[in-house]
């Protein structure tokens, strides 16, 4: 059968609202019986010091050592948008650059294009060159080999431009405890789920999020 007809026969599979999120990629909340202040990174053996005071999304790698003191809430809207660029409202082109990932961020970012999420309906697109990009999505720890490529990509982009740090490694060095990359938009998670990514991207271009 013709592929077009095959596609039509499958029907619309795009989700109106986020429906199925893996718990250990969402916000964590203190659920313990003792005082929250009494619980620290040391006492919970948190490998990235993501506890205290409270839960620090940027550092968390979801190792679950803090469980059951901290438990997932199911809230995926963890992205922090420090700068909104309204000019990208209708068309927002992303150039992803992997400076040292494990590959999981790459796959999750790729999956925002899956039919369930469908980034294009939000006016978000991928581009294969920084020359056409509005935002640079950087993921992974900053490795020696990729530092120069990252700089070149940033310089190749036209103004105005946003830098979006995706995943714990880029934001805080993650489990590898390396340097932190300065960014306009920060998307926590290890890796962040497609919902978290899309929500932050929509907010970065002046939307309400998803």
């Amino acid at each position: 059968m013709n592929w077009f007809l095959k596609g039509v026969r499958k029907g619309v599979r795009t989700e109106k609202t986020p429906s199925d999120v893996a718990p250990w990629s969402t916000e964590l909340q203190f659920k313990g019986i003792e005082e929250e202040s009494g619980v620290t990174s040391e006492s919970l053996r948190c490998p990235t010091s993501a506890i205290g005071p409270g839960w620090i999304a940027e550092r968390c790698v979801y190792c679950r050592r803090c469980y059951p003191h901290y438990q997932p809430t199911g809230n995926h809207r963890m992205g922090v948008v420090k700068r909104v660029e309204k000019r990208f409202q209708r068309s927002f082109y992303l150039y992803p650059i992997d400076v040292g990932t494990c590959g999981a961020c790459n796959t999750e970012l790729r999956l925002i294009a899956s039919p369930q999420h469908d980034l294009t309906r939000f006016g978000i697109f991928f581009t294969n060159t920084p020359r056409h990009a509005d935002a640079l999505i950087v993921m992974g720890i900053m490795t020696k080999g990729m530092r120069e490529a990252f700089r070149r990509a940033y310089e190749a982009m036209p103004e105005p431009k946003l830098v979006i740090a995706l995943g714990a490694c880029a934001i805080s060095g993650g489990i590898f405890q390396t340097e932190k990359i300065e960014a306009d938009v920060v998307i926590p998670g290890c890796p962040p789920s497609p919902y978290t990514i899309l929500d932050a991207l929509i907010r970065a271009k002046g939307g309400r999020g998803w």
Binding site: F4, G7, S25, Y62, S114, P115, Q116, C190
Partner: peptide, 29 residues
């Protein structure tokens, strides 16, 4: 394009099956 979109849909579905059972889509933690 059509099979590509179909397959990407299925990859996401597998990830969701894993995520529901194990709490994390990539078996972290």
């Amino acid at each position: 394009s059509v099979p590509s979109a179909n397959l990407l849909y299925l990859v996401e579905e597998v990830n969701r099956v894993i995520g529901r059972a194990f709490g994390h889509r990539y078996f972290y933690g």
